[in-house]
Design a binder for these strands. Structure first.
Length: 335
DNA sequence: AACCGCATCAACCGCTATCTG
DNA sequence: TCAGATAGCGGTTGATGCGGT
């Protein structure tokens, strides 16, 4: 299967788009919608529009990354940064997937922002930008080195906790402004139940303590080897079912909506590979708007809603962050 | 003023996935 | 079923701007 060139290399313009070209493309898309990108430049060159000397691929990119009306540009908010970091921890460099949860940002913009800002920031604080864990393993160092490692690790923890706390303050202030605003019609959405699995992932979340972190629960040793078991028939509330995440030693029960993409009927007595489960889970991640509502609603009690995988090695890392966030520290002693 | 190094980000390139006839 | 066409993705590049010397 041969791959045809995306465009005739001769006679088509490359490089930055001019305002005139943007105008041509916009005018055409607004009138006709883009249809086939490859055919677009030719169509845009009909009697109504001057010839657009760009290949379809370039047109599509310009539209999706710049001209689309629903694009949010400018500085990334703290919450957006948090979302990117957390989703990157889950998804890796799947920029388009990450972008779907920041509905007004393009994958290209997120990718650029990660590479130019977030990656450097995490690196500075000693966090591995691939694993999202502290880079240094204190146990593998000699005494002097282990102190450095510990310091870096603590800095990483503090930086994460500080970002969380700042994001929380922003959310709280938003919540207050909404509560006091007379014309607000925003209805707080129910928290997405599927987020509970992340608590389980982080090492256990005690539902019975109303959101308090239970440090006694053990971490799932190897999340990729863990399985999920459908607790057939254990319907907690209408439209809600219970699942258990287990690694053979440790079980954590959590509730999900029965509209969960996994067909529970097919696994009534069986188990689901976690990788498949996570695919389903990612589909269930809240959109940016939903996330906002949840954050607003839970402004004073969203302790430990951080997403991310954990294992034995970074148990303390997450514990510390959760504890710090729980204690609402807004002024970091480090920064 | 000129040069240099660095940061940023729009755009390109090459590949895979999906669609279509 | 297959091959070509098209869309979409992620990595990389290069133009540009800015601050420092």
């Amino acid at each position: 299967m041969g791959r045809s060139p995306c465009c005739e290399k001769v006679g088509l313009k490359k490089g930055s788009w001019t305002p005139e070209e943007d105008q041509k493309l916009l005018a055409y898309i607004q009138e006709h919608s883009h249809g086939s990108w490859r055919a677009l430049p030719a169509k845009a060159g009909d009697v109504h529009y001057p010839w657009l000397q760009r290949c379809g691929k370039s047109c599509r990119l310009r539209w999706t990354n710049y001209l689309r009306p629903d694009i949010k540009r400018g500085k990334f908010s703290l919450q957006e940064e948090q979302t990117i970091i957390q989703l990157h921890a889950l998804l890796g460099n799947r920029w388009s997937a990450i972008a779907t949860h920041l509905s007004k940002r393009t994958d290209n913009e997120i990718k650029n922002y990660w590479n130019t800002h977030l990656k450097k920031r995490l690196t500075k604080t000693g966090i591995d930008t691939v694993t999202h864990k502290p880079k240094t393993d204190a146990l593998s160092f000699t005494d002097g080195q282990s102190k450095t490692a510990a310091n870096l690790s603590h800095m990483a923890q503090w930086e994460t906790a500080r970002l969380e706390a700042e994001a929380r303050l922003v959310r709280e202030s938003k919540l207050r402004s909404i509560s006091f605003g007379s014309s607000s019609t925003i209805q707080p959405a129910a928290p997405p139940l599927c987020l509970d699995v992340l608590k389980a992932w982080q090492g256990g979340w005690s539902k019975s303590t109303k959101g308090g972190f239970n440090p006694d629960l053990e971490f799932v040793d190897n999340p990729t080897n863990a399985v999920l078991e459908y607790q057939g028939g254990m319907v907690k509330e209408e439209g809600e079912e219970e699942w258990k995440v287990t690694n053979g030693l440790q079980d954590v029960i959590f509730a999900v909506e029965s509209s969960w993409p996994l067909d529970s009927g097919k696994v009534e007595t069986g188990q689901v590979e976690v990788s498949n489960f996570m695919d389903g889970f990612l589909d269930q991640l809240p959109s940016n708007a939903d996330y906002q509502n949840v954050s607003e609603r839970d402004g004073d009690s969203n302790n430990g809603r951080e997403e991310g995988f954990s294992n034995e090695k970074n148990k303390n890392f997450w514990n510390n962050i959760l504890n710090m966030v729980n204690s609402s520290s807004s002024d970091s002693p480090v920064f």
